[in-house]
Every structure is written in C-alpha cells, then in structure tokens.
Design a protein around this nucleic acid. Structure first.
Lengths: 320, 320
DNA sequence: ACTATTCTCTGACTAGGATCAGAGAATCAG
DNA sequence: CTGATTCTCTGATCCTAGTCAGAGAATAGT
C-alpha cells in the first residue's frame, strides 16, 4: 500500500508537472478541469475538491480575470454561484486533456501490448474499489439538501423505468417526522460530498418502543456508482438499524421491472410474501426475519459495516 | 487514467494529511521515511526523491536539529554524506508507519472481504506495471558510476549462483573502449536514478564499419525488479543496437545454472550453436540472425521500444 | 601536481497552497 | 416579519515547497 502510493504519486507528480508546464498553477488547473463543459456550482466544487471557500473564490477570480471562467448566480438559489467555462476556458481545458493524454501515453509506451491492457484493467479495478471505499453511509436529516436530491432522483428514475411512469401524488410520501427516530430513518450515501444513494426505514406498529415490523423503502443507487456493491451496503445498513430498533422482521415491496433489485433481495434472504400494503406500483412483496440483536446494542452511526458472506454478485443497483 | 489519478490522489491526499497531522511538514516526513532504518546517502535520497540539493540539505538540517537524523561522511567517498536515523528518528518513522497503516485500514474497512483481496491484488498489479514503465534503458559511459555499480552486481550474482563461484580474473573483462561505439555498447536500465539492470554489446570482426557478428554479454536484472519483463526489454534493446550497427547475427553464451535466461533466449528465437569462444564458465552458446535494418536507421537513443509479439512469459531474470 | 568534476551546504528569493476572521447577500424556519 | 443559517467574497497572514547562484571540500583524470 505504501509502495503503491509512492509509485503512483511519482507518476501523478509527472502529471502535475505537465499541468504546471502549461504555465498555470496546479490549483487553477484542477478547478478548471473540475468545472467541466457543463459548468458547476461553486459549492459543489468546494465539496468535491475539498477546498476552503476563500481559496476557491480566489482561484475562480484568477481564472475569471484570465477570461477562462464566468461566475454567475444560480437560478435555484440566489446564494449559490455557478461557474461556467468561456470558449477560451473550454479550449484551455481541452489543452489540459491533451497534455494529460500525453502523460498517459508516456506511461503506456514502454510497456508491451499485453502489459498495457493489464495495467488499464488493474487501474480501472483500483478506481472502482477505491470509489466504493470512499462512499459513506450516514443518517440524514429529512430537510437536508441531500435528502431532497436523492429522493428526487429516486422518484425520477421510477418515472423513467416504470411502465406508464410514476406519479408522486399517488405515492405514500413520507412526512419529515417519519424519516427520523423513533418513526423511521433516512440513510444517504455520499461520495465526495454529493449524494449517490439513499434508503428509508419505516417502523410500523410501534408498541413498547419496539416496532412489530419495519419497512425498507426508497432504496436507490445513483447510476454513476452502480456495480460496486452500494445497494447491498445500503440494504445491510438498513437491516442493521432495523435490528437495533428491535424489529423482528423487515418487509419491502417492489415493482416487477426492477429485476436487479429483486435478485438482490432474494440473494440476501428475502422471501416473497403476501401483500402487506396497497401500493399501486408494487408487484412483489418480500420479508426477512432478523436475528435478534437487542435494542441499541450496536452504535447507530456506524452500524453499517458490510461484511456479507455472499460476495460473488458484484453488481447491485437497487430500488424498493 | 484521469479519473484514476483523481481518485488515488484523493486517497493519497488523505495519506498526506495523516503525515501532516503528525505536525511535521510533508517534505520532512518523506525524507525521514526514505532514509529508512539502514540509512542512505544524501545523493541517493536526492535522486530517489527528485529533490534539489539545497532543498534536501535544508530538510536534513531541520530533521537534524530535531534530533531525528545524523548526517556524517561516507567512508567510500568523502564528498558524499550519509544520513542515519537516531533512535528518536526510528521511533518517529515507526509512528509514521502506524499512521500509514491506519489510513490503509480506513480504506479497506468499508469493503467486503472479496473486494479487499481484489483491491490489494489490483494495486500490486498497478505498482508492478508502473514500475516497469518507469524503468529507462539508455547507453551509459563506461566510467559512469552506474556502470561500475551494475556490472559489479552482475559479477557478484554470478559468483553466488555458479557452482564453484565466479572468478573475475579468469573472465575476459571489457576495456572501457570496448563499451563504447564503434567497438561495443553498454546499456544500463535505471529506476528513479538508480541502476537496476544492464547489458553489453560487443562488435566482432569489424570490416568496412560493419561487424561480422555482435556478442551480447553481461545481461543482468536486479532482483528487486524481476518479473516485469526488463530482461526482455534489455535483450531487445541490445538486438536493436546490433541491427542498427549492421551486424547480421548476434551470439551469446551462458552458464547452465541460468535456466531462466536460457528459456528467455529460446523464446526469443535464439538457437543453440557450437562454441564461438573459450569462456570457461559457458555451457551453452546461442545465436540469432537479425533482420536487416540498415545502419543507423533507428535513432540509437530510443531504439529500445519493446513490442514483442510473444508476451506470455512474464518473468525473465536474465544473464549472459 | 594540476585541473575538472562531483557533492554538499549556505544565502537569497519566489509563489502557490492554505487557513482564519469577518462582512454582505440570500434563503429558510417559525 | 424576524432571527438563524447558508453561501460567497475580501483581507490579512503564514509557511512549505521549490529554485538559483555560488562557495568550499573531496575526488578523479591526466
């Protein structure tokens, strides 16, 4: 691991020099490239690159005075500012890409053909798995920006995939109070500060502080991070929270078009059962008994460690 | 490739922060770790880390005034200074290692068992192949330090491996003039400024500027970089230089204990032939006809691009 | 012995990366 | 509407990383 880091930084160092060879400070080049052709909110840049707001503001100012970037107000939120590349900025970005490709070539050139393909494959694997390890799953306040973003994406995807679309007004939307204990829980998965997945736990028939059963809903994984086992991690995290709340059984329903999700539920011990609600979009109802864990024995915040024994099926986009 | 760099630097960034969290500048920590428990010459540190001499001197001064490092003269060369860790420096180094391991754990923890093994494997693969691509093969002046170092290592290895050892005085040692054109050539492979392999080309019976045949000798690959195809690259580079010198055939001899080398020669089209010299250590003599390339059609400095069609046998420590 | 080279150290200097505090504008929650 | 929060920008400041030039000591080559 240590040697790996050293070797890679040596190469990345060469890459940085290539950036610097363009006569532009590294920080500016990074921001320029991160903005991309579609533009980006300043806030998103800050979280994605992990920069101080003052620092980023200064970098954007420098890029702006060079005529590469324009910064304007966002329509959605007057406080947020959106950075966009000017034509000159796009050209500069393309130039950076060209130099980047040149560095890549200089790395691949000395290798044989078979070594190149192996290197590219291994790099893709490392990237995938490091991405997976960067994803954090945490409870989220219902009013938090991430809650809106991820649930919105979830409903949009249902609308796109369901036969006949999905009408939110027909769905049993959750009140904010249902997404926090003791009524339920909202988990959001974030990658570099942006939401990339979510899942909701709803406790039903709570008596004596213990729910008779808990429902898993709104399980969603962003398309950009599918295939790295995030759906499984969310599912296991939700089950863990249900167990530590004392629920003996979890249930969920799903639509017949969500075949990957159905396969994942089956692989994780869910058995099809009779309908437990009248969700007009549901075709299948599943349930799974939970091993008794005692209430609050696991600390709620980090109960989401995924150590599934079944580790063969690597891909699991999921919805519930 | 670009995304790979970003992801890794994000993680390496976390690692850097871990270093910095120790309250010590990153540069000092890097040097501290690079010195290692066995000490290191200042010159070696400079080439390995790619630092300016003034800068490194200052860093070492800071580490010295903190009581972590002592710098003394090298016995071999009074100009060279050798840095060694004090007990406090060793402790500090161990602490850095501990923090490094903690970062590694934080990366591996969120992953499943199978994902972890895949990640570790892929990282090792990337490291191996990037190392391979970092190795540079270039002609070397016979009096250069690298020439002595690598040929010395070569003879030492022969002495260790041959039955009955190897006596340099019985070998036909090359005069410096035989290692430069037009009599021959010495190629040295370097990794981060240190020699990790070599090979010698000797032209024989030169008439009209063209050798009747060329001999490949002293083919050596350092143990630390075996298994990444460097022997093959050196062999192909030497053949390329022989071809551009107009030699129609290359010959080499080898000892029977060097089985990997013999296998490599066979795989590369060398056929066993009758003895062409009276080398007391040789058991096998090989030769290979070269495709006519015309003299000096390839630029000599970079004629070493290895694009072998046979890319199956990945390991090839080699000697000749 | 004499010269060129190598290695190291010192001094002077630059700039980019980064942090902190605070102000102003916009939005959210009640 | 009001107070709290969020987002951004400006100013001030620090420090590490890195570069350049030159001097002094040791070595290598002839």
């Amino acid at each position: 691991m240590r040697r790996f880091n050293r070797i890679v930084t040596q190469r990345v160092g060469a890459l940085d020099e290539a950036f610097l060879a363009r006569g532009r400070p590294l920080g500016q080049a990074r921001v320029l490239w991160e903005i991309g052709p579609d533009g980006a909110d300043v806030r998103a840049l800050r979280t994605r690159l992990g920069l101080d707001s003052g620092y980023l503001s200064r970098v954007l100012g420098a890029l702006g005075s060079d005529g590469l970037v324009t910064v304007g107000r966002s329509q959605l939120d007057g406080r947020v500012r959106t950075a966009r590349l000017t034509p000159a900025g796009l050209a500069e970005c393309a130039e950076l890409d060209r130099r980047n490709d040149a560095v890549a070539s200089s790395i691949l050139d000395p290798l044989e053909v078979s070594q190149r393909t192996r290197l590219v494959g291994a790099m893709a694997e490392v990237e995938r798995l490091l991405t997976a390890s960067l994803v954090r799953i945490e409870p989220c306040a219902p009013r938090h920006r991430h809650a809106h973003t991820s649930l919105d994406a979830y409903f949009s995807e249902l609308d796109a995939r369901f036969n006949g679309g999905f009408d939110r007004s027909r769905a049993n939307l959750d009140a904010p109070s249902d997404l926090v204990p003791p009524n339920g829980l909202l988990l959001v998965a974030t990658l570099a500060g942006e939401p990339v997945g979510c899942g909701v736990l709803r406790h039903h028939d709570v008596r004596g502080g213990r729910p008779a059963w808990s429902e898993i809903k709104r399980l969603w994984v962003a398309p950009s991070v599918r295939g790295i086992g995030l759906g499984r991690r969310l599912l296991i995290a939700l089950e863990g929270h249900a167990a530590s709340s004392g629920a003996p059984v979890v249930r969920l329903d799903t639509n017949r078009v969500l075949t990957e999700a159905i396969a994942m539920y089956r692989a994780h011990g869910y058995r099809e059962t009779r309908p437990f609600n009248d969700n007009p979009y549901a075709h299948h109802w599943f349930e799974k008994r939970l091993a008794a864990k005692g209430r609050r024995r696991r600390q709620p915040a980090t109960a989401a460690r995924t150590r599934s024994t079944n580790a063969t099926s690597g891909t699991a986009p999921a919805q519930a």
